[in-house]
């Protein structure tokens, strides 16, 4: 019957659109990664970064960090930042300490502003790639190795690299 076929088709559309809602998650992620929208940073291999030709302009990079209120950690950059020449590989060091009396798993989110600079911020290594477990009272220094892509837009004269540590207990081991 014609009507039955139509009902089945329309129901199918509804089911597909439910799936589409979920498909938006990877699509959004891929969109931000490819375009660099939203200040997502890029990851490249160390060997590739080493081949870049340093340019002679310099960009003022500032580091900022927060520890979410739910997380009893101290978290700060060891230096406030520096002037960076695109094409050079740099290291930023962050200090973190667990003030509680229990081991806690944390994980950091990251972001670059202005967002259009994010795509040209190439990391080769970062503490934010994995979960960090701190024992009671433990403190440590953590590394980010990065390079600013020489293709960084000319009008970007300064940028901010920002991290926020969240309590990641709920997701520990994932």
């Amino acid at each position: 019957m014609q009507a039955k076929k139509l009902v089945v088709q329309l129901t199918l559309v509804a089911v597909v659109m439910f799936g589409f809602g979920y498909a938006l998650v990877p699509l959004y992620e891929a969109f931000c990664r490819i375009t660099g929208f939203g200040g997502k940073t890029d990851v490249i291999a160390e060997a590739m970064a080493a081949q870049a030709v340093p340019s002679d302009r310099s960009i003022a990079v500032t580091y900022t960090s927060h520890s979410h209120t739910s997380l009893p950690w101290e978290f700060k950059p060891v230096s406030k930042g520096l002037d960076v020449k695109p094409g050079e590989i740099h290291e930023a060091v962050f200090y973190v300490k667990n003030y509680s009396n229990r081991p806690i798993t944390g994980m950091s989110t990251f972001n670059v502003t202005p967002p259009r600079a994010g795509f040209h911020f190439k990391k080769t290594e970062c503490f934010c790639f994995t979960q960090q477990v701190l024992q009671p009272g433990e403190e440590k220094e953590m590394l980010v190795r990065y390079m600013l892509d020489p293709a960084m837009p000319e009008d970007v004269l300064e940028l901010t690299l920002s991290y926020t540590f969240f309590d990641n207990e709920k997701y520990a081991g994932q």
Binding site: M17, F18, G21
Partner: peptide, 24 residues
């Protein structure tokens, strides 16, 4: 038919974020 299921998807993700350990 096109958008109510998308909303249903969004609140389902919210629900699993709340109770089932997802992180959408």
């Amino acid at each position: 038919i096109a958008v109510m299921p998308v909303f249903a998807g969004a609140v389902t993700m919210l629900l699993t974020d709340r109770h089932f350990g997802t992180a959408f």
